[in-house]
């Protein structure tokens, strides 16, 4: 008796977190359900906990020294490599974005193209930031005095639900040498975790970008009060909830910013710190 020919069963992906270059499940064992607009089940991403956030901060802090001391040329090439890896998987990203958000497939494809181009744009900034940020200062005395811009350290990001703003926030933070913990809400978790796979194949050192999926309401207050986070991009937090986060962040004077989506190097500079060095001049 001949077996009836049936369609092949698809191998579906398990969604986990991205911490220190690895893909662990949430230590809490929790997940949440992502569905399509029509209510069909898509995935069970991990619902990250406070402990996951702490682990991610530890990884980001450990990665900071190496990443910030990498040459700007090297960082630029790695960011460009991310664009290359994303390009190769653009169809997958377009379909995940279309499936999990309110955009048409055509629009989703356009978002992916723009996201790839953003990585290229940011990659180019790595070795030009000093040229627009610092310089020598003509002080009135026998001193050589110059200002340079340095990354602040560990930056948390509460991402907006759209893929392009997620990309913007990460690229702007890491191009200067910061390391990050990205908090990703809802349906964005699906393309965000696929993006983690792109990062894992882009020669990006472990811990530079860590991605936690789950609830911003739950995780953002912990990030705001964490004493080893230097800066916090709260663009993904609605305006009326930002005050409480800024209040919590005052404990270590975190640099807390939200951005309007305009493409500008000032977004990169917002998470940089200016250092001025004086040196005597003489024989």
């Amino acid at each position: 008796m001949a077996t009836k020919k049936i369609a092949r069963v698809e191998v579906k992906k398990t969604y986990k977190l991205f911490i220190n270059g690895a893909f662990p499940r949430s230590e809490s064992g929790r997940v949440f359900e992502v569905t399509s607009r029509k209510g069909e089940f898509i995935a069970n991403p991990s619902l990250a906990s406070r402990k996951d956030l702490r682990d991610a901060v530890t990884a980001a802090r450990a990665a900071h020294s190496g990443w910030s001391k990498a040459t700007a040329y090297n960082r630029g090439q790695i960011l460009y490599r991310i664009a290359e890896m994303l390009e190769g998987r653009s169809e997958q990203f377009a379909s995940e974005i279309a499936l999990t958000s309110d955009v048409t497939p055509l629009k989703a494809a356009a978002i992916v193209s723009e996201s790839i181009d953003r990585w290229v744009w940011y990659a180019g900034w790595s070795d030009k930031l000093q040229a627009i940020s610092g310089g020598t200062n003509p002080v009135a005395g026998p001193y050589f005095n110059f200002s340079i811009a340095e990354p602040q350290g560990v930056i948390a990001i509460a991402s907006s639900p759209s893929f392009l703003t997620f990309i913007d926030a990460i690229a702007a933070a890491v191009v200067s040498g910061n390391t990050t913990i990205v908090l990703v809400p809802g349906g964005l978790s699906v393309p965000a975790m696929s993006f983690a796979e792109v990062l894992a194949t882009s020669d990006l050192p472990a811990g530079v970008i860590n991605i936690l999926t789950g609830s911003l309401d739950e995780l953002a207050p912990w990030a705001a009060s964490h004493m080893d986070i230097d800066g916090f991009d709260i663009s993904g937090i609605e305006k009326k909830r930002r005050g409480a986060l800024k209040e919590a962040g005052a404990e270590n004077l975190k640099r807390i910013h939200a951005f309007d989506g305009k493409l500008s190097p000032t977004r990169i500079q917002a998470f940089m710190e200016s250092k001025t060095v004086w040196h005597t001049v003489g024989v």
């Binding site: 200062n137 200002s147 200016s274 060095v277 004086w278």
Partner: peptide, 23 residues
């Protein structure tokens, strides 16, 4: 640190940015 003096200290000038890291 936001301001570093090498072989000098406590020098100030209006053309030289001043301010700190962290707290």
């Amino acid at each position: 640190a936001g301001v570093i003096w090498a072989n000098t200290f406590n020098k100030f000038d209006p053309a030289s940015p001043f301010g700190g890291y962290k707290e």
